[in-house]
Each structure stands twice: as C-alpha cells, then as structure tokens.
C-alpha cells in the first residue's frame, strides 16, 4: 500500500517543471503528496501539517539550480528538514554514575524487557561494563521469569524479589545489591503502563524519585500510530525522560512515530531494536530514519549526487 514517495513526487513534478522558481502555485501539489506520505507513515496529523508548512516556507522563492529539477529540490528540502528535526548525530547514553542507573518506561508490549537485556548485553560486550538487571514488573504474568531467562542468555545477573510487590522497594534494593556486587550499571525493567493510568504513572514517578536514574528511557514500538504523541508527552510530563528507544524496526513500518515523538518532546532517539535476539540493537541514525519514513533511498542518493 505504500507507494514510493519519489514516484508520487515524480507525478507531481510536472506541475513544477518549466518554472525557474518555486512558487505558491507550483508547490501546492507537491506538498500535498509530501503530507500524504507522512500520514501514510504514521506521522501525527498536526505535525505533518506543521512540517509541510515549514517546508513550504523554506521552498518558496528558492531558485531552482540548473543541475537540479524543481521536484528534486523539493525532495532535498523535505529530507533535510526531516533529518534536522530528528536530531543531529547519534547520542550516547550517560554512564557517568557509579553505578549508573537506567530506568525503562513505556506502554505494554513495547519491548522494555527485551531491550533491557539488549542494553545490558551491549554495555557488557562493547563498553566492558558490569550490569545488573532489576525486575520491577510485579504485575505481568511471568515477567520476572522473562527477565531471568534473558539474563541467563547474556550472562548478566538479575535481581528480583518474588515476595515483594512494591516496585519502588525492589528498585532501591536492586541498586543496593548492585553496589554490593560491584556492578557499575543498573538496568531497571518496569511493567508496561498506559499514560492514562494515574496510579501506574505515579508508581513509576516514585521509582524515578527513589533511584534518581542517569538515564530514563522511553521505549516505544515503531509501529505506533497517531497516539504516539499523546503517550510520549504524558510519559515525558511525568518522567522528563532522557531518550527514546524505537523497537521492532526489523518490520516494514515506516516509523513516522519517530518524528512525532521527536517534535513533541524534543528528546533524542538513542537506540533502535531490530529483532528479538539480544544482539539486535543499533544506535540511531536520523538520516536513515528520514529516508525510511519517506521511503525514498534512491531519490536521496540522486539528490546527493547532484
């Protein structure tokens, strides 16, 4: 169902052709296609609107270079704007604390537990760190078991307390335990929660207060649709999180939620999840994500050559 944006723009290009300058009239059709592509990619309705307005401002009055078709110039403007919006270089996570505490947050099923394992594995293998995983999901059936299995797979210790149903207390005890073991990273897995669930949001705020994490991460499924803005904003209001993790990018979603989240909370996307296995983690590249959202790798390289 996803037509390539470049193809669509090509169709719209004829409107622009023959004009030396981008004008209000000749840009309208192209912008409509851009907006449509953004919506198909799940970029939030309002943000897509704002974005196309910005692109329009940037484009109007620009002289079309001799070696660039007007349509290609538009694509370049769109792509540059998008990349800029998505942030500059990949941002690392803060590991300065001893131990450094990393708190996971997010909706149900977004990939928190899996990512906790991946991050522990990554920090252990790539940064020679000694992580401890802490199981603070006391609700989901077998959530604690899941983290234990993950810990075993990667050879990382897991702290849990099955007799305790207070995640705040478990988190605190976990940090203490990490210190006694000489672990320099503590990764706290939490239960999935909805932003509208006040009790659960208060709970994670309390965990946050109790362990003062260096890094609070918001884990979000890259297939998320229009609601991504509401959820990201609500979690950010409560936690003022430090970064975003985009999971399940091994699928074929365009991942427009990435732009929506970035524009609404202005926090960097730090890692992406690209599979169920523990090695399926990667740092985030804004420009690649822009290409993906627009579905237009070929046009971009064409523009870059021009």
């Amino acid at each position: 169902m996803f037509d390539n944006l470049s193809e669509k723009l090509d169709k719209a290009f004829h409107v622009l052709k023959g004009h030396g300058q981008i004008t209000e009239i000749n840009v309208a059709e192209t912008l409509k296609e851009v907006r449509r592509a953004l919506l198909d990619a799940d970029v939030n309705f309002k943000i897509a609107k704002e974005f196309t307005n910005n692109v329009k401002e940037k484009a109007l009055g620009q002289n079309v270079l001799t070696n660039l078709q007007p349509g290609q110039l538009m694509v370049k403007i769109v792509k540059d704007e998008l990349t800029q919006l998505m942030g500059g270089d990949a941002e690392e996570i803060d590991l300065s604390g001893n131990p450094s505490v990393v708190l996971m947050s997010g909706l149900q099923g977004s990939g928190k537990t899996t990512f906790s394992g991946k991050l522990a594995n990554y920090l252990k293998a790539k940064k020679s760190k000694k992580p401890l995983l802490v199981a603070c999901d006391v609700y989901r059936p077998a959530a604690i078991d899941q983290l234990h299995v993950v810990g075993e797979q990667i050879g990382v210790e897991v702290y849990s307390d099955r007799d305790n149903n207070d995640p705040v207390a478990i988190a605190e005890a976990g940090v203490k335990h990490a210190k006694s073991l000489g672990c320099n990273i503590v990764i706290i897995d939490t239960a999935g929660r909805l932003a509208v669930d006040e009790q659960m949001m208060t709970e994670i705020a309390n965990i946050h207060k109790a362990v003062t994490p260096q890094e609070t991460l918001f884990v979000v499924d890259s297939m998320t649709g229009q609601d991504a803005v509401n959820t990201a904003k609500a979690f950010n209001d409560v936690l003022n999180f430090d970064g975003v993790i985009l999971t399940k990018l091994d699928g074929d979603t365009r991942g427009g939620a990435a732009i929506s989240i970035k524009s609404v909370v202005d926090k960097p996307i730090k890692f992406i999840g690209t599979g169920e296995k523990m090695e399926a983690i990667d740092v985030f590249y804004p420009s690649r994500m822009a290409d993906r959202i627009l579905g237009m790798g070929d046009v971009v390289s064409l523009v870059e050559r021009a």
Partner: peptide, 11 residues
C-alpha cells in the same frame, strides 16, 4: 492487532 498500531496494521 494492537490498538495503538498505525498504518502498518494493514500490512
């Protein structure tokens, strides 16, 4: 289908 999923649910 996850109710928060966007257009990818089609695929």
């Amino acid at each position: 289908l996850d109710g928060s999923t966007g257009q990818n649910a089609f695929e």
